[in-house]
Design a protein around this nucleic acid. Structure first.
Length: 445
RNA sequence: GGUUCCUUAGCCAAGUGGUAAGGCAAUUGACUGCAACUCAAUGAUCGUCGGUUCAACUCCGAUAGGAACCUCCA
């Protein structure tokens, strides 16, 4: 199936064509690990996981990379404040991030590189840039020379002159131009490494370049993803460095997910209106959080509120309930749950393939659920149809990454169910209600 | 100051130049021994004002309101 993606670089919907046939490389900018992740951090985790699942379904061999930024001022400051070291702090929040990612059923990345493990690669990358004139050294700091490349601003669509005139940035006297950004920062505070320029640490923008350059041929990938806020300056600067270093734009397709808002405001650590991922998952459920995150087109802002969560909880319950009933009915009739044919989920897939339109895809899922609930009430049960619907629904849920469970009945369960039905038709309601309670506890009805 | 984007029923949220998906809530029915589950029906002319067009929510312009980026941030 043809997969169309909205490319932020061209601002157009484009048909996906891989760099290498049958393979897809996806790199998603991961978190700076200085704090508990909030639900906004989870949006790219879920969105790009669905993209990955779509590619897997379409028989691509997917390499999925998401990094951890474990060198950063915030980490250093926090480590100092907590009287611990950066590494311990980073490890703690990496673990926390992995935990909530797993809780929303996102597949673990193929690679999860950490900046601290790529220092030699980063230094080498910067050395290359200095060597070819794209970077310059001033007093132990290294800056990227934006004027050395063409079309700076092509991703964020920012006009360089406007950027310079409208800059709120405090001018750094060391830089040749206010557009130039730091690649290596001389420092005597916090974690640092030796380089030929100074003892210091890398700037933020080089890590992704160095990692991608190390992990992929020609330092080029198919899809680079992340939040909208990374477009500028982070991704713009990645493109700039890669142009200077490898002569390419690092990625063919750039995808940016929208923010999660709370009320009208962006949910942000600096505003302090965040809902932590672990709290949302604890209060509701990873599946429900995931359903909320997929209920809105990934490029649109998503408003998060208790109302939205409650609605999703009900929706998820309905999905779960229908799946469970379908599976039980089949088992009571001793029909295998193993698929007899490939599920036909064409409309669902085409919605996903249309730039990951998960809201419309979910609508297809609801259509199946509604149909199933009707079929389950028909008098002579149409087992073939029931099985077909179950298999289709499960295939959709797998692509969305939503987990549902259904009971597996043993002989005892089936006998219990039969007794329940017999007592009920005998109008022995006292006893049938007792069995019903047991069956309900086992989630069989 | 510069740039980009958004505005669809009570809430969430898709969408196409030809008279608006879906979900939650609500109301009314149906099913039912009771309950749970479930099903059906009912609601918006798409911020406002103009323009283009045979036809616009969907294109263009203006206006109001909101948001984001330009500084660490998914």
């Amino acid at each position: 199936m043809e997969i169309k993606l909205f490319n932020s670089l061209t601002n157009q919907l484009e048909t996906f064509v891989p760099l290498r046939p049958g393979k897809v490389s996806i790199y998603v900018c991961g978190p700076t690990v200085y704090n508990d992740p909030h639900i906004g951090n989870l949006r790219p985790v879920v969105v790009f996981d669905v993209l990955r699942r779509l590619f897997i379904h379409e028989s691509y061999q997917v390499t999925f990379v998401s990094n951890f930024t474990d060198v950063d001022d915030k980490i250093i400051n926090r480590a100092v404040a907590e009287n611990t070291d950066e590494s311990a702090l980073a490890v703690r929040y990496i673990r926390e991030f992995n935990k909530v990612s797993a809780a929303v059923n996102s597949l673990p990345p193929t690679f999860s590189p950490r900046v601290t493990k790529y220092i030699p690669e980063i230094i080498r990358y910067i050395e290359d840039l200095v060597a070819n004139g794209a970077a310059y050294v001033v007093d132990g700091d290294v800056f990227f020379r934006v004027s050395s490349i063409s079309d700076y601003g092509e991703l964020s669509k920012i006009n360089i002159d406007d950027l310079i005139s409208g800059a709120r940035v405090e001018e750094n006297a060391k830089k040749e131009s206010s557009l130039d950004f730091v690649l290596w920062k001389k420092t005597d505070i916090g974690i640092s490494w030796d380089s030929r320029w100074s003892r210091g640490r890398p700037g933020w923008h080089t890590e992704c370049c160095a990692m991608i350059n190390s992990l992929f041929p020609d330092g080029q990938i198919d899809i680079h993803g992340g939040g909208f806020d990374l477009k500028f300056p982070h991704h713009e600067n990645e493109i700039a460095q890669s142009k200077a270093h490898n002569g390419n734009k690092i990625a063919r397709y750039w995808m940016h997910n929208g923010y999660i808002t709370f009320g009208e405001d962006k949910m942000s650590k600096s505003i302090g209106n965040v809902i932590l991922a672990k709290d949302a998952i604890k209060k509701y459920d990873g599946n429900i959080v995931r359903l909320v995150l997929l209920g809105t087109y990934y490029r649109s802002p998503l408003s998060f509120s208790p109302d939205v969560m409650d609605a999703a909880a009900i929706e998820y319950g309905r999905i779960q309930n229908a799946i469970s009933q379908l599976a039980v009915v089949l088992q009571l009739a001793d029909i295998s749950l193993i698929p007899f044919e490939k599920p036909d989920i064409e409309p669902f897939l085409s919605h996903l393939a249309n730039d990951l339109n998960t809201p419309n895809a979910i609508t297809e899922l609801f259509a199946i659920i509604k149909k199933a609930n009707g079929v389950l009430r028909q008098k002579p049960l149409d087992y073939r149809l029931i099985k077909k619907l179950l298999i289709e629904a499960l295939a959709m849920l797998e692509l969305l990454g939503l987990k549902v469970s259904y009971p597996l009945l043993n002989v005892e369960d089936k006998e219990l169910y039969a007794s329940y039905m017999r007592l009920k038709s005998d109008k022995n309601f006292a006893e049938s209600d007792r069995l019903r309670q047991i069956l309900m506890t086992k989630h069989i009805i």
